[in-house]
């Protein structure tokens, strides 16, 4: 018999706003992404110098995950939280940066610090390092938000005991103006049902 799971908490970052459970934590619509995400990070008072080395996709995913997880009152014990992310543009924003360094043979300067971010799942690694999560992780690509897949895959991980909770959602960074993070925590406890309709409703908040 399959248990039905719950959504514990959720976080959005889009249009220069950071929201936790639908409440605005920080907003400054005068800022494009790069300035906004730094200001939002500072407003959250997260002391983590690695943040500044990350590419935009990782900054977006990291801050959304950090806001969600640090408000959960987890104990110091190891947490078994799987990470399941999805998006449309993979790591293409950083891919284009790397491409621009190799396009011209007379001006050729590829950098390992850029190249390492040319994989979408690097942002999962960044979050895993910060929260010491030795857990299940996977990055999926769809041309649009796919609530059905996220619901199915989080149900599978929890019902197969591959994880105790699942941090899942959508983190897409196309460019400075076109980005969105919507992450949520699926667990056996919570106020909202982990079903397709609810997930879509939250995504579109």
């Amino acid at each position: 018999m399959l248990e039905s799971y719950k959504i514990k908490s959720y976080c959005h970052i889009e249009d220069s706003q950071l929201l936790l459970n639908g409440q605005v934590l920080y907003a400054d619509q005068s800022k494009a992404f790069t300035e906004f995400i730094k200001a939002a990070y500072k407003s959250e008072n997260t002391k983590y110098s690695k943040f500044f080395k990350m590419d935009s996709l990782s900054k977006l995913a990291f801050l959304a995950a950090d806001v969600l997880l640090k408000n959960q009152n987890y104990t110091d014990e190891e947490q078994d939280i799987a990470i399941v992310f999805s998006n449309n543009s993979s790591s293409l924003n950083t891919d284009r940066k790397h491409q621009s360094t190799i396009e011209d043979k007379s001006n050729y300067f590829p950098s390992p610090a850029v190249f390492v971010y040319t994989l979408p799942n690097i942002c999962i690694g960044e979050i895993s390092i910060k929260y010491k999560l030795n857990s299940e992780n996977s990055f999926f690509i769809f041309d649009r938000f796919n609530a059905n897949h996220l619901k199915t895959y989080s149900d599978i991980l929890l019902s197969k005991n591959k994880a105790k909770e699942v941090l899942c959602g959508w983190v897409d960074f196309e460019d400075e103006k076109d980005y969105k993070a919507f992450l949520y925590l699926v667990s056996s406890e919570g106020d909202l049902d982990n079903n397709e309709q609810e997930i879509n409703k939250l995504y579109n908040i």
Partner: peptide, 23 residues
């Protein structure tokens, strides 16, 4: 379903296929 999880992608796809069938 497109999986892009660095160099584990190919074997992870087998895991995911099994999980979907089991489910």
């Amino acid at each position: 379903i497109v999986v892009s999880n660095a160099c584990v992608s190919g074997i992870l796809a087998v895991s995911i296929a099994k999980r979907y069938i089991d489910h």
